[in-house]
């Protein structure tokens, strides 16, 4: 790790990438219109839209389309997903793993539980693998060391165990139930 100075691909803290990647000025920016299931319109740059594998293949199938309907996606998670992908494109232009990791961590930290859980099906539907990985890990991290009740409310799941089953589970999984964080 200490050999970062001889590696030309690594960017150090002091030489961070500029916020505007060169590619944006080099290419004419084509906009693509996305329409969410609640009829909100999002104009995004083509490079961002192409991060969505689903949208990309939609365009490959019907190149003349100007608006891509996304019947499975509501506006709020979509706007957050777009925000994420915009940043990822900057990292593609100027690879900096440390910065990218930092951004990804901050991206999920500031989201509410609901926002996180709502974004997962969107990332899955749009086939944004990087985001899906980040979200899955974030969810796994958030339920770590939490009580069963917390996990239930986190995911909005109803308890369908009988009282006896629940008591048996509680006894048997005692070691897992011990020392959980306060909800």
């Amino acid at each position: 790790m200490s050999s970062s100075t001889d590696s030309p691909t690594l960017t150090t803290e002091t030489t961070q990438l500029s916020p505007q990647p060169d590619t944006e000025t080099a290419k004419p920016t084509k906009k693509i219109t996305l329409k969410s299931s609640d009829n909100q319109i999002f104009e995004v740059e083509e490079s961002v839209a192409m991060e969505f594998a689903t949208v990309k293949s939609f365009f490959e199938d019907s190149p003349s389309t100007d608006t891509v309907p996304l019947p499975n996606v509501t506006a709020k998670p979509l706007s957050q997903v777009i925000e994420f992908c915009k940043e990822q494109i900057k990292f593609k232009a100027n690879p900096d793993e440390a910065q990218k990791k930092k951004y990804n961590a901050e991206f999920v930290t500031e989201k509410s539980d609901k926002d996180l859980v709502d974004m997962i099906p969107v990332a899955n539907y749009l086939e944004i693998k990087d985001l899906l990985d980040v979200l899955n890990q974030a969810v796994a991290d958030r339920i770590e060391n939490k009580s069963v009740e917390y996990v239930r409310s986190f995911f909005g799941i109803d308890n369908d165990f009988t009282a006896e089953e629940e008591a048996a589970l509680r006894r048997e999984h005692a070691w897992a139930y011990e020392g959980v964080d306060e909800d």
Binding site: N136, A140, V148, R152, A176, Y177
Partner: peptide
């Protein structure tokens, strides 16, 4: 969630959390 996505989350859970998750619902 689609099967695969849920699997991805479960795969990331340490043993104690898997146990807790097993106690959430059938």
């Amino acid at each position: 969630l689609p099967e695969l996505v849920l699997e991805c989350i479960l795969e990331r859970l340490p043993p104690a959390e898997l146990c807790s998750m097993a106690g959430v619902c059938t």
